[in-house]
């Protein structure tokens, strides 16, 4: 994969990440078993479906006082993926100029396993909410698919961005 193709893939991954963070990720449909119609009549707000994006979910964690969990999810679902793509963008630019991709790529690849944490957090959230009693259910929205696609695309990019290739030194040696 040449640097130009890498940059296109990185731009796509960043776009998908943006969609994944801002678009609806999941919708919670509360239910109360057999008395759902009655609850709907008496307390309609309790049965109203609620849609969350990842960022709205993080904000509600902060609002409800779950600061630690909120910070962890913010770091590994927002900050780390954006930083990782930034490092890859820089690496692709360096490769385009015939330079080594730089130590930061090695750092990102070392920390790469942490990037799966965002998928893990999402999965845990879904499983946790799906386990609610009374027939409540969670519908996964397209934002979650965009987020997962961004993670998968960034993994694919990490496989192709490689280490110290196309450097001036190696290029000179080849010549």
């Amino acid at each position: 994969m040449n640097p130009r193709q890498l940059q296109v893939c990185l731009a796509a991954a960043a776009g998908l990440l943006g969609l994944g963070l801002f678009a609806p990720c999941m919708t919670l449909h509360p239910a109360f078993g057999d008395i759902t119609p009655l609850v709907r009549l008496l307390k309609p707000d309790l049965t109203a479906p609620t849609t969350y994006s990842i960022l709205e979910g993080i904000r509600s964690m902060f609002d409800e006082g779950s600061i630690f969990i909120g910070v962890v999810v913010l770091l590994f679902s927002v900050v780390f993926p954006v930083w990782k793509l930034g490092v890859y963008f820089m690496a692709a630019a360096r490769r385009a100029r015939g330079l080594d991709t730089g130590a930061s790529v090695r750092w990102v690849n070392q920390l790469g396993k942490w990037s799966m944490l965002d998928v893990f957090v999402l999965a845990v959230l879904v499983v946790a909410i799906k386990g609610l009693p009374g027939g409540s259910r969670v519908a996964i929205e397209w934002g979650a698919a965009a987020f997962c696609a961004s993670v998968l695309l960034s993994i694919y990019i990490s496989l192709h961005i490689g280490g110290p290739r196309n450097s001036v030194a190696s290029g000179a040696a080849e010549d």
Binding site: A14, F22, G86, M90, R94
Partner: peptide, 24 residues
Amino acid sequence: SPPAPSPFYYGVPLLIVLAVGAVF
């Protein structure tokens, strides 16, 4: 060695994410 790329490249994904967010 050719000159290193501008540090601006680090910020490109953030700009794209923010742009998508703004459009959304």
